[in-house]
């Protein structure tokens, strides 16, 4: 568990961080809390020549409102996301999912942006970002651009970020109306990654389900939306039988991995069960 040698800089501005990434070239990596990257370095699974640590860039930390959007700085730590009153009010699903990330030590060092940029489909937060239709804002040499969460996650540990881009903030549309949320994480131990996770947000209107947004953790090489379930639930009655019928489509179109934690058929089954449970809870039943 001894990493190979690397250079290290901790710039004070995003512009300096971008400049450092350009200088560092292909072998430069962004350090944004280090809860995934440091273990990778210690196991010598990666040999970056330069780490650009974002921890000194104050503007990347914190939660604020911007009209109909909630803006979360990429370097906001999980623990701060979980306890933030704005997050609890406008994006409770995120707070609930973030509270299940690993253990307290990790949640006090790991960051929201770091977790998204790592793009581990077994991570809890990418599925939430996808479900809530987050916009991820990146800054590079050409300025800022916004990337929809659905486009941001491209493959296992692969994102739309260019090597010289830094993820600076995440913009979540505030949930308007009567929303209920639930994150159903299924893991063997409290600290372990999800075998499958289901992030659900459900809007009730006059006893029916007006709208559902469902993101799946670890059901493919990227986080995915359970589109067939969402379609089946839109306008459906908020009843156990209806929800169960809709949840039966949770694995439709997914490509669940098969590994030590579970075969793909088991994951598909879990996705259906957990989706039913998450939607049931989110619908307030």
């Amino acid at each position: 568990m001894i990493p190979a040698q690397f250079d290290y800089v901790a710039p004070g501005t995003v512009a300096d961080a971008v400049a450092a990434l350009i200088d560092g070239g292909e072998d430069a990596k962004v350090l944004a809390g280090g809860q995934s990257l440091i273990p990778v370095l210690r196991l010598r699974l990666s040999y970056p020549s330069l780490l650009v640590d974002l921890r000194k860039i104050d503007e990347l930390r914190g939660v604020r409102e911007d009209g109909a959007e909630l803006v979360i700085g990429a370097m906001t730590r999980h623990a701060d996301v979980i306890s933030d009153p704005l997050v609890r009010q406008h994006a409770a699903l995120l707070a609930e999912a973030a509270a299940t990330v690993a253990d307290p030590a990790v949640r006090h060092r790991g960051t929201f942006g770091g977790s998204l940029a790592h793009a581990d489909p077994a991570g809890d937060l990418p599925a939430v970002a996808v479900a809530l239709g987050a916009q991820l804002v990146a800054e590079g040499p050409g300025g800022r651009r916004s990337i929809a969460a659905a486009d941001f996650f491209q493959d296992y540990l692969q994102t739309a970020l260019a090597p010289d881009e830094v993820l600076v903030e995440v913009r979540l549309p505030k949930l308007q109306g009567r929303w209920g949320v639930a994150y159903e994480k299924f893991s063997r131990t409290a600290q372990a990654w999800a075998i499958v996770g289901v992030a659900a947000a459900v809007r009730r209107d006059n006893g029916a389900i007006a709208e559902a947004r469902i993101g799946l953790t670890n059901m493919g090489s990227t986080p995915v939306r359970a589109g067939a379930v969402e379609a089946a639930l839109a306008g459906a009655s908020a009843e156990a039988g209806t929800i169960a019928e809709a949840a039966a489509h949770a694995a439709d179109g997914t490509h669940a991995p098969s590994d030590l934690s579970g075969g793909s058929d088991y994951r598909e089954h879990l996705a259906r069960v957990l989706t039913r449970r998450a939607v049931t809870t989110a619908a307030g039943l």
Binding site: D103, R188, T189, A190, Q191, A192, W193, L260
Partner: peptide
């Protein structure tokens, strides 16, 4: 050994 780290070799903690 495919359970080569504590990510795959699961030790329970007090939480479990």
């Amino acid at each position: 050994l495919v359970t080569g780290t504590m990510a795959d070799y699961l030790l329970p903690t007090a939480a479990d």
